[in-house]
């Protein structure tokens, strides 16, 4: 039989936007935090058989990202796109993804990245799990199948947690949990020349316009502008060893490593 795995992915903005966000295939890329989720799904499929479907909500330019996922080895791509979705916050997005996942039922697993590289909220995965009333483990490091479901390892703040999950359930993956594969030329050729993407609008999901887009979004972005940060260069004194010690101490203190 094999598993039916859905990976929810996002096309993110490559460069910081100025005022308004224009999404095209040139200005967007697959959210780097989604790559480990795709890789985990593809490895599970290779080990246990089944299919992997990539699901994305976004404008038509997101089709590029779905094709990239297909170039990695994903079997199906589904794009939920509708003018009514413009302005959706994370809750509205989760509402749409939950409806799309419902339509894709029955599935065994639904994966997410931990967060998106452009808006960085980390809301969408957990919110979608709540809306579907499915169990979810976030920041998973490794997974293996058990007789009754899935064994999941989660490393966080120096602790190692192990969970057993039933099917269906949902996961977000630690960005460093796995090294995502590179896109091979043959995969790119097949995905972009022959890969078909299923397109759904709001009416396909039986959703009212009032629960999505700006109307369905309790949060609102009031303005968007480029943040200016000042960089300063500092030279450390001492011997090479002392400098390394000092550098490590500062990186640890600032929480950048460790």
């Amino acid at each position: 039989m094999g598993l039916k795995i859905i990976v929810c992915i996002k096309s993110v903005i490559v460069n910081p936007a100025n005022q308004s966000v224009v999404r095209t295939s040139d200005s967007c890329e697959l959210n780097p935090f989604d790559r480990p989720a795709l890789e985990q799904a593809l490895r599970m499929k290779e080990a246990m058989g089944g299919t992997v479907t990539a699901l994305s909500m976004g404008p038509e330019s997101s089709a590029f990202t779905l094709h990239e996922a297909m170039a990695m080895g994903v079997d199906h791509g589904v794009l939920v796109s509708d003018p009514a979705l413009v302005g959706s916050d994370t809750l509205a997005t989760s509402t749409v993804l939950a409806a799309a996942l419902k339509r894709l039922e029955p599935f065994d697993l639904a994966f997410f990245g931990t967060r998106s590289a452009d808006s960085d909220t980390g809301h969408v995965g957990p919110q979608t799990a709540v809306l579907l009333d499915l169990p979810m483990v976030t920041w998973a490091h490794s997974i293996e199948s058990s007789e009754t479901g899935l064994l999941v390892e989660r490393r966080i703040d120096g602790f190692l947690e192990r969970y057993e999950l039933p099917f269906p359930s949902m996961l977000t993956f630690h960005p460093n949990s796995v090294e995502p594969r590179d896109l091979g030329l043959s995969g790119i050729n097949g995905a972009f020349e022959e890969g078909e993407i299923q397109r759904w609008g709001l009416s396909d999901l039986d959703l009212s316009p009032s629960v999505v887009g700006e109307k369905g979004s309790p949060t609102r972005v009031l303005s968007l502008s480029r943040a200016h940060s000042t960089k300063k260069c500092e030279f450390l004194d001492g011997t090479a060893e002392e400098q390394v010690e000092e550098l490590l101490r500062r990186l640890l203190d600032s929480g950048l490593i460790g």
């Binding site: 890329e29 590029f64 094709h67 590179d182 790119i188 972009f192």
Partner: peptide
């Protein structure tokens, strides 16, 4: 130049650049 490229061409550029 990018104006003339297909999405497939763009995906090739992006993936080969990242790899290299």
């Amino acid at each position: 130049m990018d104006t003339f490229l297909t999405d497939k061409n763009r995906a090739v550029r992006r993936s080969v650049r990242a790899f290299c």
